[in-house]
Amino acid sequence: MANINWRTINIDALEAESSYNFDLSTLTPAVQPVSTADVQALSGQIRQLSRGGDNEGALRGALENAPFGADEQGKSIHLSVVTEILQNIRQAEMTPILQRMYQSENGSEVCDTLMKYLYKGMAQGAPSANATTNATNARNVTPQATGFTQAGGRNFGGGEGGGQAMSVLLSWHEKLVEMVGPGSIVRVMSDRRTV
């Protein structure tokens, strides 16, 4: 006993009523679980819209039906769809689209969702090219197999393509913050419904 540092004992684990002993997910707002197949079907529809030239409708559809309840794979599929659409929209069209989106019904919430995807996209490096493959690769790559766990686990979006995607996300971010202010950024950080 003498050589146990009692300051490091987790006293919460010993108390039955402590927060350590209940499921923290019960605190989050209820989200509908979404299966990966559904996300895939939805992304198909959205891509179709986008291919038909209706990028704005596609973006709106993607943001309004963001799969908060999907698993990691489902979420990364949806992320790649969103970033694809964002890249399809020309710089000059960004502000008018955002304005129309923000002023519509539930506009503030849609813009918050877009902000979530921008940050998620930036965290991913080069999302459009790697997001889907990353998710599938992650399970196969074991630390022993490569020996470069750090390098394998993180993708800095290297090369021209990644930089391009990042600059698109950054210009969307700039235009979005102009519209919705720091309030939206704070909401993304505090929101427990992640994308």
Partner: peptide, 8 residues
């Protein structure tokens, strides 16, 4: 009452 994002 819960707010939409469950923020503090």
């Amino acid at each position: 009452y819960l707010n939409p994002t469950a923020g503090w």
